[in-house]
Design a protein around this nucleic acid. Structure first.
Lengths: 330, 330
DNA sequence: ATACTCGCGTCAATCGATTGATTTCGCTTC
DNA sequence: GAAGCGAAATCAATCGATTGACGCGAGTAT
């Protein structure tokens, strides 16, 4: 900035005022000279110096439980793009629930960020306490964060309803659920949507199994479902795409044909779903939008504007592929 | 820091010297008092102020072409963990080859980072020029970056050799290749490994098709392969797991049984590979390690130590599942 | 007793940008 | 021609940490 000032023949403070867009009185001619000098020297303000002076870093942090999970990486992508559009940068840390939150500590305690997007796994009560103690502005993403914390969610319940309804409309009455971990609130909401729809349709008690949101989790849950006493379901809703893929493998191994013997719908969509055998019918949730909405919400919080939790308004969308068939006439 | 100094009854400069571990003359008793005060006040130095003074941010940047790709997200994960272990934070940006590198500009031009991990897609020559112009210390990851740039790679050629050899050992002589985009150097190296092994075994010219590293890419490449003139291969090496999944769908659709009519090996492993029908035999590459090795290499560069490009020494590992069978007796 | 050294700390400048207070400039008015 | 008044630009303090130069007091050598 000193160089720019010298080149334009003015004081650095004038340069600062012009470039920061302060609406103060500067002659148009001076302004032009400064802007030209700045452009020629390719001047860009130093982030550290600005942060120090303004107590505002221009960066946001993002805590993610697992990058390699496609749902999270999609959220990260949209958050990063939105942040970029806002002129912010994103600091990222993976937060394993069992490990010490070293990344978090760096970000927050060294004041590297203005605010935080939180997408932790499992219990976040201790984290919430810490966030409040450190008074870090934050927004939970795809997770509820407790009474006083803001969050951005998708309508998991509506998604589960859409998936379940598709199976009912195909004529199924014995519908099972392959659910996610019961202690995660997204899987509870999906369960609720499933149950609500089933009950409303007057269908009998279902077989419900559960496991982690992963292919092995779905594989085992599907085996359990097949081994459960009572009449076997003719259709299942899988609460997560990866679980659905695991279940598909379990069904294939057990000689249960999809969709002939067992119709399936998976919650969550991804390109991959079009390449399973058979191609999987899914409920696409607007996960992509969550990241950018979360950034915008956090931006409001940082600006001190009133803000409240958001459920992404884009409705779930059923993507019909080949994993649903009418129940076999028995 | 001022508070710590007051609490310990010393000057801030003394606090700074003690806490930054400078080996200067400070009485043990004074040192203890300062450390205790710092601990009680939970003092942590302000990153902006340090950066400003030291011209060193303690952050590294990472440019990734696509978060949602499992290979990249694995690399990101290990890089983030390694950086954390080194007391650094990671700033992330997604760099779409077709878009303006806004994220890059923020990171580099505002001096937010000390160095950069680069994993761009396609042509990086203009990026290299820019990196050199801005004199940003950098390391390419899973990509070659030109003459003067350092890079961290896995032995793609050896991986392709291992996969091809597995098919040859099962008795196949007509082996096709479903390759990646010809303009990416990783796919060239995989091609070379394939060709070298094939030639060494004296096998006839193969059918080679290619496409993007994705399921649709593999699907189309597999269709092309089936439609190619001449005798149909009895086995294929897919240069990427996602392509293999797409190919599997194409084969299923065409009534080509795997592994009965067509054996397959996929380059790259992931949990998912165990849940296809049939479960896919893969060549696991040490992608996970690349991130942490890249961070360590960058660290050397930043420290001004001599450094050179690295090929991750962990050898590729064949993970045998169910997608290889002997060729059908014809 | 004076000079000198050495251990222990403090002083003060510095990094680059921001901003309220202040000065300078250009012009009008009496 | 001096006073007055905005407008335009500069001054200087500030953010928090770092670090070389310096000061002080105690002990040692001469």
């Amino acid at each position: 900035m000193r160089d720019v000032a010298a080149a334009a023949g003015v004081d650095v403070s004038t340069v600062s005022k012009v470039l920061s867009g302060a609406a103060i009185s500067v002659r148009a001619e001076t302004r032009a000279r400064i802007e030209q000098a700045a452009a020629e020297l390719r001047y860009r303000p130093d982030a550290s110096a600005r942060s120090l002076r303004l107590s505002r870093t221009g960066a946001i942090g993002m805590l993610v439980p697992d990058f390699t999970n496609a749902v999270w990486s999609g959220i990260v992508r949209s958050a990063v793009h939105e942040a970029e559009a806002q002129g912010r940068v994103v600091l990222i840390a993976e937060m394993d629930p069992d490990q010490s939150p070293a990344g978090y500590l760096h970000l927050v305690h060294e004041r590297r960020i203005d605010g935080l997007l939180v997408a932790t796994a499992r219990d976040q009560s201790s984290l919430v306490a810490e966030l409040e103690h450190d008074s870090v502005p934050h927004v939970f993403v795809n997770r509820r964060g407790g009474e006083r914390s803001l969050s951005v969610l998708v309508d998991d319940e509506a998604g589960a309803v859409a998936g379940t309804r598709a199976l009912i409309e195909a004529g199924h009455t014995r519908i099972g659920l392959i659910g996610g971990p019961p202690d995660i609130d997204t899987s509870r909401r999906r369960f609720d949507g499933f149950e609500r729809t089933r009950t409303a349709a007057g269908l009998p008690d279902p077989v419900v199994t559960s496991g982690p949101y992963s292919a092995p989790g779905g594989y085992r849950a599907a085996q359990e479902l097949l081994a459960a006493p009572g009449p076997r379901p003719t259709a299942v809703l899988a609460a997560n795409l990866m679980m659905a893929l695991g279940a598909l493998a379990a069904f294939a191994e057990a000689g249960v044909g999809v969709p002939g013997d067992m119709s399936m719908v998976a919650y969550d969509d991804a390109e991959l779903a079009g390449f399973t055998q058979p191609a999987m019918t899914t409920v696409a949730m607007p996960h992509q939008e969550m990241g950018s909405i979360a950034v915008r919400l956090l931006e409001r919080v940082l600006a001190g504007e009133p803000a409240e939790s958001i459920v992404v308004p884009t409705p779930p969308r059923l993507i019909e592929r080949d994993s649903i068939a009418p129940p076999r006439a028995s």
